[in-house]
Amino acid sequence: MSKELVNAIAEMKEQEALELAKEMVDGGSDPMEIMGAARDAMGIVGERYEEGTYFLPELILSGVMLNQIAEMVKPKLAEAVEVERHGKVVVGTVEGDIHDIGKDIVVFMLDVNGFDVLDLGIDVPPQKFVEAIKDFEPQVVGLSGFLTLAFDSMKDTVDAIKKAGLRDKVRIMIGGGQISDEIRKHAGADAYGADAMAGVSLAKEWIGVK
């Protein structure tokens, strides 16, 4: 049945997926198996996004399905599901910018590709990135931004990370609507990604995931 669940989620059949998950929960299936199936399905969704067959609607709907299934399973779970993770990434939209569509896609894709992602949200001041690097100890930091003001906010964030003595602890990637390699140079980041897949590749490369 877990195979059917994987398919239902991956094929965007929300009703079917929820019914299957409920049946499995009620029938006493191992909650870990249900969540494992959901995660496998998210992996397929990520692959299809990468191939260019799935787009924003599918990412959003599958995310919503995953959350609903997690809610169903939660009461049955003795402990939180620990999934093995490749490494840690901190992501946020830089100070002054409140756009989140692009950042959310990157978070989604990093997550389904097995990274432990801390999403700091939008309009994140440089100091908050610095604190997150200290507390969460990521190997990679992703800065997102949509407006031209983000160019300088990204630079300010990289500078603050430098000033805190943390620059050599993390690799920094940037991305967003108008971001380019020129902006990477301006900001002093290590790389820029044209899309979410590029962000995943960078994180894999830097963390050493095959």
């Binding site: 031209t148 160019f151 108008q178 971001i179 020129e182 902006i183």
Partner: peptide, 9 residues
Amino acid sequence: VPLDLLSVG
């Protein structure tokens, strides 16, 4: 004309 070019070019 791209905004990155107009900003930092």
